[in-house]
Design a protein around this nucleic acid. Structure first.
Length: 260
DNA sequence: AATCCACACAACCGCCTTGTT
DNA sequence: CAACAAGGCGGTTGTGTGGAT
């Protein structure tokens, strides 16, 4: 590292905003020659008028070959909900379990999709009520979709990304203790039984769906899962469903839980 | 056709941690 | 051990786009 003023190319004006194709090409070529890392050096010597941080972000979130693009699958959404319930906003940690997805993408997903649901329900997205609602309604629906996709294709008997299949008991994904623990209320999630050691071997059993009051699960759920919901993404509640959830929670948990 | 609005996502910023001198 | 630089992370903002009015 030729640090000490090794580069006198520091007087130029730094560029900001969207990256151009030319900048992307320069970055890709530089990394192909010199590898990742040492981002400030890269920024100085590659000819890019960007900060090292900007280069790093562009590479990791967009240019890196294994970055996966496109909509998140139900499995990926399920994992995000599950891991977020355990770790909170530890995006990079969560991203480790979704190969090809970046922390930025997961963070955006949470903000634009999940938090939006909370806003519509007028629930604090960090509240235990909302977490329970996710577990009671959203996650089972994702499991539904995973199961449907599984049975229709059969090409991939286990849709869960390989990385979660470790046997480390400290791994929260494999830990059963995280299920239903967040609720400080007597909502229906409390009725869920202890889970089997591996929740993913039979997701339906694992989530104790048979213990749920099936009448309480909006019928639209299956329509949605079958593609008839008209939603642009999987797992989303319609406003009717959202109000159903809200009402049920008000009945079960008493008033005053939802924001007015 | 024009305007408005909501949404998705790329990018930036500031803080914290870690490594090096 | 302190000072500094670099990298990493989470929060926030900016911008392009498509749909609704």
């Amino acid at each position: 590292m030729s640090s000490k003023k090794g580069a006198k190319c520091e007087e130029f004006e730094l560029r900001r905003g969207p990256w151009t194709l030319e900048e992307d090409t320069m970055l890709i070529h530089y990394i192909a020659r010199h590898g990742e890392g040492r981002w400030n050096l890269l920024a100085r010597c590659s000819g890019l008028k960007r900060t090292g941080k900007s280069c790093r972000l562009r590479w990791l979130n967009y240019l890196k070959p294994d970055v996966k693009r496109g909509n998140l699958s139900p499995e990926e959404q399920f994992l995000i909900l599950e891991l977020h319930s355990k770790w909170g906003n530890r995006w990079s940690r969560i991203a480790q379990f979704l190969p090809g997805r970046t922390d930025n993408e997961i963070k955006n997903y949470w903000r634009t999709r999940v938090q939006k649901q909370a806003r519509q329900l007028k629930i604090d997205a960090n509240s235990s009520i909302f977490r329970d609602a996710l577990r009671c309604y959203w996650m089972p629906r994702l499991l539904d979709q995973m199961s449907l996709a599984d049975s229709s294709s059969n090409s991939n008997p286990n849709p869960i990304p390989q990385q979660v299949h470790n046997t480390d008991s400290s791994d929260p994904v494999m830990s059963t203790s995280c299920y239903g623990q967040s609720s400080s209320t007597n909502c229906s999630m409390d009725r869920l039984p202890e889970l089997a050691p591996s929740p993913y071997e039979d997701p339906f059993l694992a989530y104790g769906l048979d213990a749920l009051d099936s009448a309480a699960v909006p019928a639209v759920a299956t329509d949605c899962a079958a593609g008839g919901g008209g939603s642009d993404w999987e797992g989303l509640w319609s406003m009717d469903e959202a109000w159903h959830v809200r009402k049920q929670h008000e009945e079960e948990c008493g008033g005053g839980i939802f924001l007015q």
